[in-house]
Design a protein around this nucleic acid. Structure first.
Lengths: 344, 344
DNA sequence: CTGAAAGCGCTTACAG
DNA sequence: CTGAAAGCGCTTACAG
């Protein structure tokens, strides 16, 4: 048990309300008195009890909105787990979290969700933005005109006034893959890159990080691609077949995104399963299976649940404790897994 | 805002105290009344407000003791970070956490710390036990006679009545290293194992997991050792020199424990820096440096801070919410890092 | 500028 | 078995 506001009030010979005003800079107090009280609190080692604070402030009802795009993917499911955990914590502290799931990536749906939340009276929003001008403009409007703080996660839209971004550093992710690849192929040979969409910023970063790092550290490696499979298995399979045809001496494949099963299917048909080394992204059941079957040698992933958890908590800390986030770009850790560090 | 106990009381036409008794099975209530109230609460979708609960119960003051051995290592420092985080949370919820740091691994000091905590009136203890009979006996006494629940972390002592264990699965850790090693050496060649202490259970598990997995999956690999360096750099250096002398064709080294700098020194003197592949354990500054300098190729580690955090929270959940841990063995994740996924 | 009082949602002696 | 009341530590109108 610590020192309470009541004890300070007694020690200072004032009322509890006055101590509160002094300690929380609420004004309406004579500066000398405030100073004296602050000193006493300091001396007594006062640490405010969050419980009392939260319970008392639960009248205000802080409301945080969460907008998630493409919510039916395994990754986003894990993200939603994190959101749920944050929601429970916020609920416990007297706040509210409302979640809007947008089934696919769409600018108009995103904007609509944002407007709805504003009408619902949210005090802040955490969201996965899509990289379109209309969405960016709406974010500018929210942060600027309506003064509704916004935290982006998973993908970022800089220059929109968003408070901060929580997600992966794509460049670093690509570099990590390059380092693993270098070991897998012993620093020499042909490596193909298969990506999802040419225009997707995160995937682009992975490709860039991978490419530059391979060129710098393993000059004897020859890169093939990048080819783009639009995260479709059929397309990925065709691409892989063509690559194999043109490069019978291919040693490895780096996949920045989905379509893994298609690639593996092509490898299987050519009898190359496990012989061609493969690095893929994202921790999900499908990839674990392919890893167990020997197709995928390393998996690179991120802590999905923290991407759902942290943005909500950042906003809550802002609204409840008036605590600004430490950095503008909050990168999540990059995890490497092999066959022995995946869940059964 | 949710339904409150007061609303239920009004709906049921009873007092708030009665609702409390009904909902928390406190007895001293007519069963029919209790049932009726439970039903009403259910219908109204009542979810108890943890804040009110915690604030009210903060009179009781739940006190959790933490005993940490060998607290001056980098790993234990991270563990203590986790303890600190848990302590803040528990403090916020009206509890207390007291920490006792034992500078070195010692049975008598551990027992002394336990006794002191008991006199201090702790309601539960989280501790790193040493693997000695006297300590085990003391743990049995605490859990049995005094009914003080104990959670072990980092290393375990089964059959002592301890509530659960939080830490690494050493076997799995060794297997993960084996999988990485197989890729590093391309499935063939000589690999040396250097461990810390022959008798340390965790290190033994790592060696076992590594050995069995290499034998099973890479029959062409020849294993050298394990040799034991007692986590001392000088000793590790000498051992490495000898191994190199007898095995000029050595391809890689697996270190289960400390002494890394000594090994690297020996490699450097022989001009083998970076040529001999190396996998080491534990995320710490020294190892990051050796990785950046090209000596260490993979680092295997655990989330140290969660090992400090989780045991305290498990006990808090037990005492505060009467919530038992889900499993008896709570294994922390095994993380793999390469040069690109370590902090600068 | 300051104080007295009510209130946040729950628990817990104390009467009856 | 049940109720009325006090209390946990803080905040916040409302008076003055």
């Amino acid at each position: 048990m610590g020192v309470t506001i009541r004890q300070i009030a007694e020690a200072a010979g004032v009322s509890r309300g006055t101590v509160d005003r002094a300690l929380n800079n609420r004004g309406r107090i004579r500066p000398e008195v405030a100073e004296r009280i602050q000193k006493i609190a300091e001396e007594m080692g006062y640490r405010p009890n969050q419980l009392g604070r939260a319970l008392s402030m639960s009248k205000n009802n802080i409301k945080i909105g969460v907008i998630v795009q493409a919510c039916e993917t395994p990754f986003m499911n894990d993200v939603l787990e994190g959101v749920k955990k944050a929601k429970e914590e916020v609920d416990n502290l007297g706040g509210t979290v409302i979640v809007c799931k947008i089934p696919h990536i769409s600018a108009s749906d995103t904007i609509e969700a944002m407007e709805e939340m504003r009408k619902d009276g949210v005090s802040a929003i955490a969201m996965v933005p899509s990289d379109e001008e209309a969405v960016k403009e709406k974010i500018r409007e929210f942060t600027g005109v309506y003064q509704i703080p916004i935290v982006t996660f998973n993908s970022d839209v800089p220059d929109t006034g968003r408070l901060c971004f929580v997600g992966q550093n794509g460049i670093q992710c690509g570099k990590a893959a390059a380092g693993l690849m270098g070991e897998l192929v012993n620093g020499t040979g042909k490596i193909a890159i298969i990506s999802g969409y040419r225009t997707n910023p995160s995937l682009r970063e992975r490709v860039d990080g991978f490419t530059t790092q391979i060129r710098e550290k393993y000059p004897d490696v020859e890169l093939v691609g990048p080819e783009y499979c639009f995260e479709e298995n059929e397309k990925a399979e065709k691409i892989t077949e063509e690559i194999l045809k043109e490069n019978p001496d291919l040693k490895a494949i780096y996949m920045t995104s989905h379509g893994e099963s298609g690639v593996c299917m092509a490898l299987k048909k050519k009898g190359m399963a496990g012989k061609i080394k493969m690095i893929a992204n994202d921790f999900m059941g499908e990839n674990y299976r392919l890893m167990r079957e020997g197709y995928i040698h390393f998996l690179i992933g991120q802590d999905a649940s923290i991407q759902g958890y942290e943005p909500v908590m950042i906003l809550f800390r802002l609204l409840f404790h008036a605590e600004e986030p430490e950095k503008e770009l909050i990168y999540t850790e990059i995890y490497i897994r092999n066959e022995y560090t995946i869940p059964e």
